[in-house]
């Protein structure tokens, strides 16, 4: 087996969407907890600390996913043509990309809606 940190370890194939899932849980959980503890005023609309915080968090997640995608993609181009390593690393790169896009799309409502109603 390859070490976990090797970009050719097939575990990375799922990593992008695992990160997405964790982000999703944190987003939903954070929203619920924040609305319980200190709901921002409704009149602020979408411009309140909570949307801003969740938005920053989402952007950071997207950045992380894009970085990992780049890391996997570079590793893929180093691997031999038609090798399973190349396949795994490329797949991992695209899954990271999918994770990034999914993060963006799910976060879009942050731009429109106030958080706690």
């Amino acid at each position: 087996m390859r070490p976990l940190r090797s970009p050719y370890n097939p575990i990375h194939i799922a990593l992008g969407l695992v990160i997405w899932s964790l982000w999703f849980v944190a987003l939903y959980g954070g929203l619920s907890v924040a609305c319980r503890v200190a709901p921002p005023a409704l009149s602020l609309g979408m411009w309140n600390w909570l949307n801003l915080l969740l938005g920053l968090f989402s952007v950071a997640t997207v950045a992380l996913l894009l970085g990992l995608a780049r890391w996997s993609w570079r590793a893929a181009s180093r691997a031999g043509k038609r090798s399973p390593e190349r396949f795994a690393a490329r797949l991992a790169a695209t899954v990271h990309l999918v994770g990034a896009v999914a993060t963006l799309v799910v976060a879009v409502p942050l731009l429109r809606l106030p958080p706690c109603v």
């Binding site: 999703f24 929203l31 619920s32 799309v105 799910v106 879009v108 409502p109 809606l113 958080p115 109603v117």
Partner: peptide, 15 residues
């Protein structure tokens, strides 16, 4: 459930 949370799930469902 708060509408913003519903919107997250709505977007994911369409995704």
């Amino acid at each position: 459930i708060p509408q913003l949370a519903q919107a997250f799930f709505s977007a994911a469902s369409m995704l």
